[in-house]
Design a protein around this nucleic acid. Structure first.
Length: 353
DNA sequence: AATTGGTGCAACCGCAAATAG
DNA sequence: CCTATTTGCGGTTGCACCAAT
């Protein structure tokens, strides 16, 4: 007896999601939280398979997602993590807050792979390519040579490159360019490998335990990775602010080229229903945190001014620009309150039960 | 202006792992 | 422990966009 399909596919809609479907899904999850994806489509009134709903939510609708191209820093992190973890995209994504495995995978396949090849690095092994296969600017790329009936990605999955072969080791100038970020990132990467080893029940880690504990006085255990609640969600642009009513029509206003159709519009429309959840509790703000803009990671502090300005942002949209200015961030960034952005299961349960 | 080929990304598919009964 | 079901992951595809011709 074969495995049953995950859902009854008869009569289910496939293909791109419409704004209306997005609204339904967002509304449902904001009201009920993430639970039992199989039941979601029925309860939310969607003609979609639960899997499709989960994917849409995790890859596109989640408010803590960071949109836009990966920054240089993120790209380097992806390369280094890939050097250690192979094609384990979800693991890699877990170290890049606001990024999804799908996004990273796509970015790897469309950008980074090519970049590395151009630089003469094998994107699979992260080692220098033999001179004959190195792609130069005035030399067209050669056809990939299939090896052992496995394409390079399959090979990567089957046999992830050894820990020590990060691109930083291979191409010193890359490490040089990112020297400032290196220390903290090494901690992250070490942690990534450590976690991976743990999950694979590897009793012996190739990493010296001393590097795990302290890295130039910076310990990853003491200063955790950027939490979702510290991410400022970039708003696409001023012409598509929540007040613009065009995006609220039932037709899909999705503009692929500019990302102008954006689920953020719909979050904004739904925001009033979440008022009760948005009062920023001072106890929820750590004394020091990080926040993002689209291209840079900025470290900042959640001081009293910051918190009061948060309140301003939350409670009075008309003051958004002033508050953003007071916080020293771009007004084009739309700030979701931490409780809104931090959509972990506990938050959902706390607010919705 | 029309056509074509390349590119990027959202979404689908199938398998594997995790969980429930 | 076994089986059924659900969830998560990685590979792949389809299609819209865009630049080149």
């Amino acid at each position: 007896m074969g495995r049953q399909p995950c859902c009854d596919k008869v009569g289910l809609k496939k293909g791109p999601w419409t704004a209306d479907e997005d609204k339904k899904l967002i509304s449902f999850i904001l009201t009920n939280g993430q639970c039992c994806w199989r039941a979601v489509p029925k309860l939310a009134g969607l003609l979609r398979c639960g899997k499709s709903c989960r994917l849409r939510w995790t890859n596109y609708l989640r408010p803590d997602l960071k949109r836009g191209l990966l920054s240089e820093y993120e790209e380097k992190m992806v390369i280094d993590l890939h050097a250690q973890l192979g094609n384990r995209w979800s693991k890699i994504a877990s170290h890049l807050p606001g990024r999804t495995d799908n996004e990273i995978k796509n970015h790897w396949n469309t950008h980074i792979k090519k970049k590395l090849k151009k630089m003469g690095i094998d994107p699979v092994t992260h080692k220098p390519l033999p001179p004959s296969t190195t792609i130069t600017a005035d030399q067209p790329p050669q056809e990939e040579q299939p090896e052992n009936n496995l394409d390079s990605d399959q090979q990567a999955k089957k046999d992830p490159p050894p820990f020590s072969n990060s691109v930083s080791d291979t191409i010193p100038e890359i490490a040089q360019q990112n020297r400032e970020a290196e220390t903290s990132m090494q901690s992250t990467l070490t942690e990534a490998k450590e976690e991976d080893d743990k999950s694979n029940n590897h009793s012996q880690s190739p990493i010296d335990s001393s590097t795990m504990e302290v890295n130039n006085g910076f310990c990853i255990d003491e200063v955790p990775l950027i939490e979702p609640d510290a991410i400022l969600v970039p708003y696409p642009n001023s012409s598509s602010t929540p007040s613009s009513s065009s995006s609220s029509s039932s037709s899909c206003s999705y503009d692929r080229s500019s990302n102008n159709y954006n689920a953020f519009d719909h979050h904004q429309e739904l925001l009033p229903t979440m008022d009760c959840c948005w009062q920023l509790s001072s106890s929820s703000a750590s004394s020091c945190d990080y926040y993002y803009d689209t291209n840079n990671i900025i470290m900042g502090f959640w001081d009293d001014d910051f918190i009061s300005n948060w309140d301003m942002l939350i409670n009075d949209n008309s003051d958004t620009n002033n508050a953003a200015a007071a916080l020293g961030v771009e007004p084009s960034l739309v700030q979701y309150p931490p409780e809104m952005v931090q959509l972990d299961e506990d938050s959902w349960n706390f607010y919705h039960l």
